[in-house]
Design a protein around this nucleic acid. Structure first.
Length: 207
DNA sequence: ATCTCGATAGTCT
DNA sequence: GACTATCGAGATC
């Protein structure tokens, strides 16, 4: 997606990223997934890392839009965001889940024995969904599956280099097809309905 | 299906 | 020294 896509306003970007394709041309292989669940974080939102000002950790959030903000949390997980606000402002969209499309075998290896034990041949629709959610059904899971870490923090997502986001093949979902709910795992700003996914989307982190 | 809890280390007060 | 934009295991219903 071009730079201007990320300048539409964080809430709009969060909805418009649904169905877009995240691609990682990693040294071990090409990985791709359809974005199925997002959350918006704005500068005046107490749950946003940028709310209390710029620090070394959140610096890329204050940089130009269209770049990756990847941080480490809970001592063992990474989270991947797309920076949205104009420079100096500190806003981003958290990618919470994907439907894996390419590189599933590599994702299984990265996700560990439990995920690797699941059948890769899509015996049934239910089995495919189970596998997809085990691989990329959560912000920490998808980072592990894709091999995303702080080394990729700040990557420009608008050019096809190592990590980028491609347009939704059939365009973004209709507004009427998108559900908005409170965000997951936060202590402040719990009332804001800034988590988005398609109605009837099976590839989400949780209900 | 839903819950409670522990792991684990970087960040900020 | 407290907190964390999480995950998975184990208990419970």
């Amino acid at each position: 997606m071009p730079r201007d896509f990320y300048r539409q306003g964080t809430l709009t970007v969060a909805r418009s990223l649904l169905d877009c394709i995240l691609v990682h041309d990693s040294p071990e292989g090409l990985l791709a997934g359809r974005i199925t669940e997002t959350e918006a974080y704005t500068h005046d939102d107490p749950a946003c890392h940028a709310f209390r000002g710029q620090t070394a950790r959140n610096a890329t959030m204050f940089g130009p839009p269209g770049h990756a903000y990847i941080y480490f949390t809970y001592g063992m997980h990474h989270c991947f965001n797309a920076v949205t606000a104009p420079e100096g402002r500190g806003e981003a969209v958290l990618i919470r889940a994907l439907e894996p499309l390419a590189g599933l075998e590599l994702m299984q290896r990265r996700r560990g024995p439990a995920a690797a034990a699941l059948s890769l041949s899509s015996d049934s629709e239910a089995a495919r969904i189970r596998l997809g959610r085990a691989l990329c059904g959560g912000p920490g899971k998808l980072c592990q599956a894709f091999g995303l870490n702080r080394a990729l923090n700040g990557t420009d997502l608008t050019e096809q280099g190592r990590l980028w986001i491609a347009a939704a093949p059939d365009g973004p979902p209709d507004a009427a097809a998108i559900v908005a709910t409170p965000r997951i795992g936060i202590a402040q700003g719990v009332e804001l309905p800034w988590r988005f996914y398609r109605r009837d989307e099976p590839y989400i982190s949780r209900k």
